[in-house]
Structures are given as structure tokens and as C-alpha cells.
């Protein structure tokens, strides 16, 4: 089985780093899209390649709740 690919690392100061570009992630605009609805948010983004980091607790928490609410609509 292939090793899990990491797109980011956390440096000793706790900063999120983009593995591909070797630069710190910065606060940037992103949009969650689901069932024709869009939600503008700001998340850690790589300023070079555009990689967006979605924290696990956000994905399993608020984002999952929004998906369920949209499915109920």
C-alpha cells in the first residue's frame, strides 16, 4: 500500500507549511460548495500553489452539519 501523502507539515513553531512549495500557509479566501450552495470562508492556503488546508474538526463538525442541513432542505 502506498504511503499516505502529506501536503502540509507543522514546523517547530506550530506553523503550517506547504510540503510541495516549502512556504508557510497564509490566511486566504476559499469557498465550500455543496448542492448548488456556496459558503465563502477563509482558511490556511499556500500562496504559491493554492493548496487549501481544511482542519479535520472543521470537516467533521461544521461542514458535515451544513451538508446534512442542505440535504434536508
Amino acid at each position: 500500500m502506498a504511503a499516505e501523502k502529506n501536503y502540509y507539515t507543522i514546523d517547530p513553531q506550530g506553523k503550517l507549511m506547504c510540503v510541495k512549495c516549502g512556504v508557510p500557509l497564509e490566511k486566504g479566501k476559499a469557498k465550500f460548495m455543496y448542492l448548488d450552495n456556496g459558503f465563502p470562508v477563509e482558511l490556511p492556503v499556500c500562496p504559491r500553489c493554492g493548496f487549501v488546508y481544511v482542519p479535520e474538526e472543521l470537516a467533521l463538525g461544521k461542514v458535515a452539519s451544513v451538508e446534512r442541513a442542505l440535504e434536508d432542505k
Binding site: L25, E26, K27, F32, V41, E42, L43, P44, K62
Partner: peptide, 21 residues
Amino acid sequence: AFDGDDALTETSALDAFLEQA
């Protein structure tokens, strides 16, 4: 609202939608 935002994260649009729902 879920208090998970930090210096690099801002998700109030999701909070507003969830509260409305």
C-alpha cells in the same frame, strides 16, 4: 457558534447558515 476559528481560519458563513437552519 462552534469556536474553532483561529488566526488563519474564518468560517462565520457556515455558522450563519447553521443557525438559520
